[in-house]
Each structure stands twice: as C-alpha cells, then as structure tokens.
C-alpha cells in the first residue's frame, strides 16, 4: 500500500528480478523434460535453439502408452497410497483419542514406545521387514506395500497433540448428555480435527506415493510395481535415446502435477500443519 504512492524502489526491482530468475532456473529441468519428450527420436535436445523450434511429435507418448503399463503403475501407486492414507487416519485417530482422553494401565509406556518409533526410518528395518513379509507370504503383493506404512507414529503424535487442545468442557457436556466414549470420539473429536486429519492424510499420501526403497525390494513383478520403481525398470530398456524415457517421466508425473495444481493450497497447508503443530 505504502509503496504504491512512490515509484518502486530499486531494492524491490532487484527482488523481482531475483525471484523470477530463480523460479525460471528452478523450472528448467521440468520444462526440459516436457519439451524433450515432444522431440522426435534422434534429434539434438541440448541446443536451446533446436529445443524451441519444431518439429514436435507425440510419437514418444504413443510409444510409451502402448509399450508401458503406465496406467497400471499409476493405479498401483494410487491404490497403495490411498489405502495407506485412509487406514492410517482411522488407526491413528483411534489410538490418539485413547492416549489423549482415556486413562488406562501402561499409558505412559505405550505413549513412549510410539514416540520412540517416530524416528525409526523404514530404511533401518528393510532386512527384518523383508523376512517378515516372506514368512507371511506377502512379498510382491499390495499388502506388503501398505502394511509397513501403517505403523505411523507420526499420525498418532500429530492427532494426539490436536486432541489435547480440545477443551474438556465439551467432553464433560457430552458426558452429562449420556454419550459414551465412542460417541464423543465420533461426534466431537472427528469433526473438530478434520483439518488435522486432512493434513496428516496429504502428508501420508505424498510419502507413500513417492516411496522408493521398500517397493523396490518388496515387488518382483512389473504389473505390481508402483511408479517410482516401474519407471527406472521401463527406462532401463532404452539405452540409446532419451525421448522415450522423458515421455515416460512426463506421463508418470502428470497425475501428481495435476493434483498439485488443483489442491496446492490444501497440500501446502497440510505440510505446514504436519510440521508445525
């Protein structure tokens, strides 16, 4: 407001220049990926002039769509991420409610065991986890991808923090009306914590969607693979060109980019809440 009266100060101009130059540099890899995928096979894609002038073609996309099960992998990724997210929210909200509002034997102990798990990365568990999956006969199945992600102490932690902040008067009032714990959970805590759950859900979904190491170990067959594992597998067959791998990259990223464009406000809010609250 204040600055509009005067001419834009130099520092402001510098800021604009800096901001937009950086964003441009930031977007180069993505832009280059998209343009390269549109160039016919064998053309030079490192000379900027050639990149920005025709010919362009959709052949690479056609090729990838007919030769790679992109939709199948996208579905696998989506299914695994969606189930993981929904079940995580259900399990962790129930557990967080008990930890926040109920008295029971061993509460402190259980709370600390869950909190301690907060910092155990999946990466440190791959060997035993793999053996457990083999014992359960689950290797190469959706379950093997979903189950380990459900042991999510972060969700319990976030939701418990939120539940702790809900005023006790609400609970007492409901009690007087004769509501049981489940009723209180269902009709007071769940509606109030909708935004926390959304935040947790978005965070869980992105983590699962981009998970690489575990699906890379647990899946043996192409048709069961999620996108992050399937894409390098598909690309490894194209050693002499880069248009087809790039087209595969674009197709694999498209759903995530679209979702991000439509829901970016929620996604960013979600991450903020998971991090800060």
């Amino acid at each position: 407001m204040r600055s509009r009266k005067k001419k834009m100060p130099i520092s402001r101009k510098v800021l604009y220049l800096l901001g937009y130059t950086m964003v441009f540099i930031w977007l180069i890899p993505v832009l280059w990926m998209c343009i390269t995928a549109l160039k016919p096979g064998g053309s030079a894609v490192t000379v900027i002039r050639d990149l920005l002038s025709p010919p362009y073609t959709l052949d690479n996309y056609n090729y990838v769509l007919t030769n790679a099960s992109i939709w199948n992998w996208t579905w696998n990724s989506f299914y695994v991420a969606a189930v993981t997210t929904i079940v995580t929210i259900i399990l962790t909200s129930l557990a967080a409610f008990a930890l926040s509002r109920m008295q029971f034997f061993g509460k402190t102990f259980i709370f600390w065991v869950i909190i301690a798990g907060l910092m155990v990365p999946v990466e440190a568990k791959i060997i035993p986890l793999f053996q457990i999956m083999i014992d359960m006969g689950l290797i190469n199945s959706y379950s093997s991808l979903i189950l380990p992600g459900l042991a999510a102490p972060l969700g319990v932690f976030i939701l418990k923090q939120f539940y702790d902040g809900i005023p006790n008067e609400l609970v007492e009032a409901a009690r007087i009306d004769g509501a049981g714990m489940l009723r209180i959970f269902w009709s007071i805590f769940l509606p109030l914590s909708r935004s926390s759950m959304a935040a947790l859900g978005i965070f869980t979904f992105i983590t699962s969607w981009n998970n690489f190491l575990w699906p890379f170990l647990a899946i043996n067959e192409e048709k069961m693979m999620t996108l992050p594992v399937a894409i390098p597998t598909f690309q490894s067959a194209y050693t002499a060109e880069l248009m087809i791998p790039m087209a595969a990259n674009v197709l694999a990223s498209l759903p995530a980019i679209l979702v991000f464009i439509f829901f970016q406000k929620h996604i960013i809010k979600g991450i903020t809440m998971t991090g800060i609250k």
Binding site: P29, L227, V229
Partner: peptide
C-alpha cells in the same frame, strides 16, 4: 513443485 515428483 519438484517435491511432488518421484525420485526416479
């Protein structure tokens, strides 16, 4: 934006 892309 890059954060939502897969590591692959």
């Amino acid at each position: 934006l890059p954060f939502i892309l897969s590591i692959s």
